[in-house]
Design a protein around this nucleic acid. Sequence first.
RNA 1: GUCCCCGUAGCUCAGUAGGAUAGAGCGCGAGAUUCCUAAUCUCGAGGUCGGAGGUUCGAAUCCUCCCGGGGACGCCA
Length: 551
Amino acid sequence: MKSLIRQRLEAIVKELYGFVPEAYNLEVPREKAHGDYATNIAFLLAKNLKRKPDDIAQEIANKLSDAYLQAQALRGFINFKFKEELLKEEFVKLLENPQLYFFEKVKEPLYMMVEFVSANPTGPLHVGHGRGAVVGDVLARILERFGHKVVREYYINDAGYQVYLLGLSVLYRYYELYGKEDLQLKEVFEREGYRGEYIKELAREVKELYGSSLLEKDKEEAIDFLREFATKKLLEEIKATLQEFGVFFDSWVSEKGLHQEGLVEEVLKELERRCYIYEQEGALWFKSSTFGDDKDRVVRRSDGTYTYFAGDIAYHYHKYRRGFQKVINLWGSDHHGYEKRLMASLKALGIPEDWLVVEFVQMVKIFKEGQEVRMSKRTGDFVSLQELLQEVGKDAVRFVFLTKTSDTPLDFDIDLVKKKSSENPVFYVQYAHARIRGVFREVKERYGIDADSSDLRPYIRELDSQEDIELIKKCLFLKDVYEGVLDSFSPHLITYSLIELAKDFHHYYNHHRVMVEDKKVMLSRLTLFKGVELTLKTAFEILGISAPERM
RNA sequence: GUCCCCGUAGCUCAGUAGGAUAGAGCGCGAGAUUCCUAAUCUCGAGGUCGGAGGUUCGAAUCCUCCCGGGGACGCCA
């Protein structure tokens, strides 16, 4: 709907004044009386043309109005109102094929990647990961609907010290099972080890499978073996949780694999060739400060091992060479300071600046009985995503994770989300769908009219009350919302619009009955409900939540 | 100490590249069911948009300073 205005507006402005100002607004005005959309373009033109905004707005408005669109100049603003004919024609398109209507294919589809979750395989997923998972998943779904080719990737940090500590922690617990003490091991474990209950479980599993054979083994060898064993197990667990959460990946890339394939060495050589690498105190440094980072960073330690950063440069260079035209990374907010560094490395490698977009996903704080539940992987005291899913269900978790912009912290009140009441927005929205399905069942039973298979399009004509038109608009508006998500990578906009749509629907439902004497009115309202149903269903598919028949 | 994010109704937050009279949900108060699901609806109270300057036709939004909250600053990942 918005792009419809935009096209016409720009054409006319260009015709009248020879240019279109860059940063003009076209948005839904706060005040309903100001129409469906409004623009400030006349103010911007006024500056350039040295004329009164009022006059310019008037000029444009006069040229713009036609059978479909009413444009009105008011104190320098131009207000647009869609005429009923246009709204009804658009609504027919929606009824015929919601997918086609809501997601117009982009002209130039891109080969894209969304990299998300990428949690270290050192423990179960926590709720913060869950938030990233939903945001990434929904983003990927939207990009796909608009015609982009999207690969969802999970980067596995299975190299380096953290997974070494994982192996060490399992070994410590394993020794414990046999009453074996190792002071050096104990010292490291108590300082940095993973203490969650799941480590003990892994140790027990090892005992069951391999008995006491690891007691004889060299300690480092045993840690190596257990690291391998534990990351594999935990990764399986992560995959299972994600699957239960409705999140799937096309591709899993291992950090260790990058090292083994020599990609890390290769990219460092490339950086060296470009003269961005130097040696100091026995370590190799990357000159990230030349590209806006605060200081230079180590890529190879003095002991000869590579840093996580080195692996990450290689990973992204590899992504680039795999042919992705645009990459979106979803990172936990604790990686905020890391962005500059990585961007610097990409610049150094000659990769275009807008190739990579990093979106940050902030913390989720869990509240239970009014108390914050503290989370720490080290001490093992945390609510896992698995537990949360079991407690409140997939639909509620996914929806709530999308009710705020991902870059602000989210408070998740378990007790509130468990409530099946209006306090809980997901039920409010799903209830609208269930109510419509209920009406359809009833109409079929009483009158033998099947809303799912009948051609209802002709009855749109009969809809003419203010509230009919408002509801139609709310459905059509979702199209603009999806396009907004495509531009801003902010899937949370969808939940807001859905709550508004549901609100208008519930209002309508309480004021107008479908099953009335006048058949024409009945059929027209059935048509309206069909459109709302399809709009909701399409949105639920994108959000990955269910569209219940009854509640 | 340096850098980043945030401060909007009692609470949790929207406010989409500076726009028109400041938005929603929850909570609170009052009401609605002979009729397709009351998990709903209707009405109401509630605000110096953290503070002070500045930029301009116009500021919650941009700039400077201050106050308050959170995060990041490893040869960890």
